[in-house]
Amino acid sequence: MARSLLLLPEAGTMQDDARLTLVTSDGEAIRGKAKAASREPEVGVSRDLDWSILMAHAQEGNSTAYLRLLREITPYLRSLVRRWIKDAWDIEDAVQDILLTLHSIRHTYDPSRPFGPWLVGIANRRAIDKLRRRGRQALRETPLTAEHEATIAAAGNSDDALEKQHLEKVINDLPPIQRTAVDLLKLKEMSLKEASDATGLSVASLKMATHRALRNLRNLLSDRRDS
């Protein structure tokens, strides 16, 4: 209803042909297009006409026109695909799929007909295909849980485990005060005050011990790396 109300008063003006084809052409694709046109008839029609002209040039091998067309339709395609697909990566995949399809069958476009329905027709097919594929994939996939990640992190890095062992050994070789300081301040992440309460040592001596411990560790570990 709204569509005819909006489009008919303008039917006598300049771009008569484009408007009439938009209204009278058939197909599932056009319905979406017509809905868009009813919202903003001016913009929709002139845009469609631009795209038709650009595509006609592209068919003749004009790469500038083609690039401009592709850049202009990409956001539009994204908005179309978003109706079916929610995941951001899948949307981008589907958009690229549509662009590739459009490229491979660009000779099927007839410039005397509106561009929108042609584009929407391709986009719908590809988006639905993508959904189907996604459905099949989903059957074979299991979501990654925190548990998986933990096992992967633990099992995947045997190097880390070795390094840790070695570090513990080196820390054990430190003088007792330095060892305590590193243990409390660095490994258990206590504050200086907590550590001083726990050990009875002064904050200053703890600081000093940590400093020396780190210097020693640095020397010991770099020695190992050189050897």
């Binding site: 068919q59 592709l70 850049r71 958009v95 690229q96 662009l99 000779h107």
Partner: peptide, 23 residues
């Protein structure tokens, strides 16, 4: 592949095509 890269690579490779005749 990034979509903008795809656009560029598609647009740089557009030999003229022969349109289909009406169905």
């Amino acid at each position: 592949m990034d979509t903008s890269d795809l656009l560029l690579s598609l647009a740089t490779n557009v030999p003229p095509v022969k349109r289909l005749r009406p169905p």
